[in-house]
Simulated assay, not measured.
Amino acid sequence: MLASLSLILLCQLTGEAVVRGLGLPLPGPVLGLLLLLTLLLARDRFALLAHGPLGKDGVESASKGLLAHLSLLFVPAGVGVVQELDLLASHGIAIVLVLALSVVVTLLATVLTFRLVSRLLKQQDFR
């Protein structure tokens, strides 16, 4: 598991270094994630990559370890919220209204999409 987590962090570090070095308008972790995805897709083609941290056992143990401690990943977000309490207090009502509006818009979009797909599937059944 340690090797797999090290590989994840190495991909993130590589992405961050490339983005900063080339001045790309892209977050470093996103490029690192794309690098990790490329490595995972390539592991089936190359036997050398299929063993070790990229092997199915390595990925599975790392993912189980991350899921077991998933709540720890919310600590930085919670600290960020606590640091901005004065901002939340001054704009609290606007934030609540925007959140409520976004929930309503999301629900409406979901319902309309469901109805459209349902109608298209019914038309397809009659053909």
Rank of each mutant, 00 (worst) to 15 (best):
Q83V: 06
A100I: 09
D44M: 05
R45W: 07
L31T: 01
V75W: 04
L41A: 12
V104A: 15
L67T: 07
E60F: 10
H51S: 14
G58F: 00
T106C: 15
L36K: 06
H69M: 07
L54N: 06
L72W: 08
V111Q: 12
L85G: 03
L101W: 15
L85S: 02
L101E: 07
E60T: 10
L40Q: 07
L36D: 02
D57C: 01
L35V: 05
L99Y: 04
E60L: 11
L73D: 03
V96M: 08
H51W: 08
S90H: 08
V96T: 04
L34Q: 11
L54C: 05
F46L: 11
D57E: 13
G78H: 05
L35P: 02
H91W: 05
L54D: 03
A89S: 12
F74W: 14
P27R: 08
A89Q: 13
L72K: 02
V104L: 15
L33N: 12
S61R: 11
H69A: 07
D44E: 14
V81H: 12
A62Q: 06
L48F: 14
V103D: 05
L34T: 11
I95W: 15
L72Y: 10
L41N: 14
K64L: 08
A68R: 08
S63L: 14
R43G: 04
H69R: 09
Q83G: 04
P27A: 03
V30A: 03
A68M: 04
S63G: 07
L40P: 00
L73F: 12
H69P: 02
R45G: 12
A50C: 02
V103P: 00
S90G: 01
R45N: 13
V82K: 09
G55N: 08
D86C: 02
L112R: 15
L31P: 00
T38Y: 04
G28L: 02
P29T: 08
T110N: 12
V81Y: 13
S61M: 07
